[in-house]
Amino acid sequence: MSENELNHDEFGTGVGTLMWITLAPWIWAFHFTICYGLTAILCEKAIPDGDVGTLRLVLVAVTVIALAGIAAAGLSGWRNWTEGGLLDKRGETGLGDLASRNRFLGQVSVFLAVVSFIGVVFVILPILMFGSCR
C-alpha cells in the first residue's frame, strides 16, 4: 500500500468522520426535541392555561447554546473547507485526493450549519410570540 494508507478504523475514523458533518443538524434535532418535549410536558402537566414565562426563559437559553454549537460546527467546517489553500481552491471539492475530500466534508458542514441555524431560529419563534399554552 502506498503513501495515503490510512488507519482502517472503519467505525471510528470512517463513519465517525462522515457523521461529523451532521453535527449541526443533530444539534437542531436535539434543540427541537427539547422544545417540543418540555412544552408538551409543561402544557399538559403544569400550566395548561397559565403563563409560559419560565418555559420561554429556559428555551431561549437552550436556543442560545444550540446556536453557539451550530456556529462552532460551521466554523470547524469552514476551516476544513479552506484548509491548505486560499479561498480560490473552494470549488475543487471533486478531485480524487485526500485534501479535496476534506474540503468537501468541510463545505457540506458549513452548508448544513447554515440550514440548521435557520431551522433553530424558526423553531424558537413560537415560544417568543405566544404567551400561553392555549
Binding site: 424558526f122 419563534l125 413560537p126 410570540m129 405566544f130 404567551g131 400561553s132
Partner: peptide, 16 residues
C-alpha cells in the same frame, strides 16, 4: 428564507 420568515411570523401571529 426571507419569504418564509415573513410568512411564518404572520401565520404564527394570528394563532392566539
Amino acid at each position: 428564507t426571507l419569504v418564509i420568515t415573513a410568512l411564518l411570523v404572520w401565520g404564527l401571529s394570528i394563532m392566539p
